[in-house]
Design a protein around this nucleic acid. Structure first.
Lengths: 212, 212
DNA sequence: CCACCATTCGAACGGTCGTTTGAATCGTTC
DNA sequence: GAACGATTCAAACGACCGTTCGAATGGTGG
């Protein structure tokens, strides 16, 4: 097998296993076995397990964030409604770069939750710029909402997206197969409607609030 | 130290570490050291690491779900608006049983994402009943929405809740401290407004949809 | 054909993991 | 105070971890 092939195969196997089991629970022996490569190949091609995990994310994040910004910019000013902005934000990661939508999103979700210390700074840097752009676009479309409020709601949207894919199986059980998160079209439509509704909700007054 | 104390101390230490690092990344040596107990204490009191993790969840889930149902039932029929139902659903886990709100929710989030195989069935059983009750209550308040649709949106609400706490630190960085997830009052208010808005959003038509 | 460099391979390293064991210790009961 | 069950303890078990190393292998340019 050519060297480039081995590298790519390792990245694919790592992407699968990180999505299924997370970072700590995935061993290099299991990973290289699935990739049909030698155990030492990971350290030869990437240097370490951490570097491999980083490479898995790097391979996907950049194209997805670029696609998000491309779609955001492509929305005609007359159609700058919340739905369109949310769709530009959630659809690229859900559909993935190359048919890897669900798996990729699960990797992100896992990593962002497991947060191996070496990834915190890295993940923050990768998403900060895109988040700012969408935050600004949403504020422009929702003039009555405060800055913090829109941040909160964008954050909630990310959570809804990540969770829906993470727990696709559990969710299908809950609903006796009524809702299937592997139907990406349905998922995107439902998520866009929900998040847009949440973003548009009346601004919270914030003063004197009741306790329980 | 009395036996009951050791048991409880182990549960507390496990709750902290599972929230911070997840299941796979937490070792029993680290855990027992923090609890000031002997390494063998875990296997003596709980039988295994898996059983300890299960016990951590069991200690909290039942009271929280009971509180959810209590609050749901306590809503006067005249005030059965979406906001009240959502608040009854999200506030008990966020505030936690005994000042442990954030930590507990992080444990849930971690576990539901990491999904150690031995916990999948367990978690499903614990939440199925409560989820059904809230699904029914929401449908009664939102007569125009379909069954699957309300399931989707309840699922999204859970994701928003879990994610907001999981990534509290990252989020505070993004917003330069503008949004602090450790301010539970603010978090609950923002989440209730967002989720209620999302739940109330117009029903998705579902037919012929565009592709990007 | 040969020398060369990149890659693969089997084997081992030290270290940590969850678990088990058997003896030491504690609190209670007679 | 002696006997006893419950609990704690130090130590070790085998297994698996990420990483490293030197030899074997492969294709390429001289």
């Amino acid at each position: 097998m050519a060297a480039a092939d081995t590298r790519e195969t390792l990245l694919d196997a790592a992407e699968e296993l990180l999505a299924e089991q997370g970072y700590a629970a995935t061993s290099l022996r299991q990973l290289t076995a699935r990739a049909g490569a030698n155990l030492a190949a990971v350290n030869y091609h990437f240097g370490s397990k951490e570097a491999l995990a980083k490479a898995v994310l790097e391979r996907r994040i950049a194209p997805i964030n670029a696609e998000r910004l491309r779609r955001l910019a492509a929305i005609p000013p007359r159609r700058r409604r919340v739905e369109a902005i949310v769709r530009a934000f959630v659809e690229p990661p859900l559909r993935g770069g190359a048919g890897t939508g669900e798996r990729l999103c699960r990797v992100f979700g896992r990593m962002s939750v497991e947060q191996p210390p070496f990834l915190r700074v890295f993940l923050g840097q990768q998403f900060r710029g895109v988040a700012r752009r969408f935050h600004a676009a949403l504020r422009a479309t929702l003039p009555g909402h405060g800055e913090a409020e829109v941040w909160w709601r964008l954050h909630f949207t990310v959570g809804a997206m990540a969770h829906a894919l993470q727990n696709a199986h559990l969710f299908a059980d809950f609903t006796h197969g009524l809702c299937r998160a592997d139907d990406v079209d349905q998922l995107v439509d439902q998520l866009v409607a929900f998040a847009a509704g949440g973003l548009r909700a009346a601004s919270t007054a914030a003063p004197a609030r009741r306790r329980a």
